[in-house]
Amino acid sequence: MSTTAPAAPTKGTPRASVPRRRGGWNRFAHKGSPYAYIAPFFLLFGLVGLFPLLYTVNVAMHDWDLLKGQGDFVGFGNFVEILGDEMFWNSIRNTLSIFLLSAIPQLAVALLIAYLLDRGLRAPTFWRMSVLIPFVVTPVAVALIFSSIFNEADGLVNNLLNLIGIADQQWKQDTFLSHIAIATMVNFRWTGYNALILLAAMQAVPRDLYESAAIDGAGAARRFFSITIPSIRPTLIFVIITATIGGLQIFAEPRLFDVSTAGGIGGSERQFQTTVLFLWELAFFRRNFGEASAVAILLFLLIVGIGLINFLISRRIATGNGPRVSRRELRRARRNGEHA
């Protein structure tokens, strides 16, 4: 059996393309260009984010007056003073109470609104824009409007309660009632915003999963908890984390809720003074920047800790037994598509 040698390429015949090795500069540009694209963000973050954070640590280590400037080095003395201050712990309790009263109902209602908007309502653009209107209103306007609504003398809420035989409530004097009123402001402004974020995630879920689950007899609640929640888990975790950060940094609502009578420090007996409001009082009323910076660092650690706990809990809840069911439904949907 004879073998034939490959014919030599004639003149004009194109040669097989051979990949060229990248030169040093081309290799560097290829691998380094992504870092160059994201570098402006990190430079800006270092300028307006990281540097102020490190500078706050430096201020917290000194006896720092608002007008006189830097004083003596005190080390952790400011932290010791703050941790021994009962008003600090009162602000922590108020912040956590308002956070729980606002974050939990807010996320639950946002999930429900997003689910209803995802069901194919008529005029969907109108309803999506409607739930976003409260977010457009400035926090100052929201605080002033709800401060009037919860007014103890002639507020709308007390007038409605009087119609059903309930006496006037001390919304601005009672600790728990004032927390409910402030949480209502927060929920009014942020529920629609979070609902639209969750809606965008829900619309990315394959419809074949819902159709296959409905054919198998799964009800609406079963489809929601076994398909929707596991599928939007990353977005749900993001919303929970952002709600945690915003809820623990609340300032405008308690600042303006009773500013006319309590001076904006969180009530006559500080019954709704949050940690950021306590920080503001230390910095600009007492002019003690050192202790105010210590409060800021302690609040930062609290937010990181609670955010981490929320991340772990939400990840466990969102995972549950849902992903296993979701993958099974996905395989069934694909088989149904092949047989169709």
Results as ranks from 00 to 15, higher is better:
Ser17Tyr: 06
Gly24Tyr: 03
Asn26Thr: 14
Ser33Pro: 08
Val48Phe: 15
Leu54His: 07
Tyr55Asp: 07
Asp65Tyr: 09
Val74Pro: 07
Asn78His: 05
Asn78Arg: 02
Glu86Arg: 15
Ile92Ala: 09
Asn94Ala: 12
Leu96Pro: 08
Ser97Glu: 14
Leu100Glu: 06
Leu100His: 07
Leu101Pro: 08
Ile104Ala: 15
Gln106Trp: 03
Leu111Ser: 11
Leu112Gly: 15
Ala114Thr: 03
Leu121Pro: 04
Arg122His: 11
Thr125Met: 08
Trp127Pro: 04
Arg128Asn: 11
Ser130Val: 14
Ser130Arg: 10
Pro139Phe: 02
Val142Tyr: 06
Asn151Phe: 02
Glu152Gly: 07
Asp154Asn: 10
Asn159Gly: 10
Asp168Trp: 03
Tyr193Gly: 10
Met202Trp: 05
Gln203Glu: 04
Glu211Cys: 02
Ala214Cys: 12
Ala221Cys: 05
Phe224Asn: 02
Leu236Ile: 02
Phe238Gly: 13
Gly246Thr: 11
Ala262Phe: 10
Gly266Leu: 01
Arg270Asp: 07
Leu279Met: 07
Leu279Ser: 03
Glu281Lys: 11
Phe289Ala: 06
Gly290Asp: 03
Ser293Glu: 03
Ser293Lys: 02
Ala294Met: 01
Ile297Tyr: 00
Leu298Gln: 02
Leu298Pro: 01
Phe300Gln: 09
Leu301Gly: 12
Leu302Phe: 03
Gly305Tyr: 07
Asn310Glu: 08
Arg315Gln: 09
Arg316Ala: 13
Gly322Ala: 04
Arg324Met: 14
Arg324Ser: 14
Val325Trp: 09
Val325His: 10
Leu330Glu: 10
Arg335Glu: 13
Asn336Leu: 15
Glu338Arg: 14
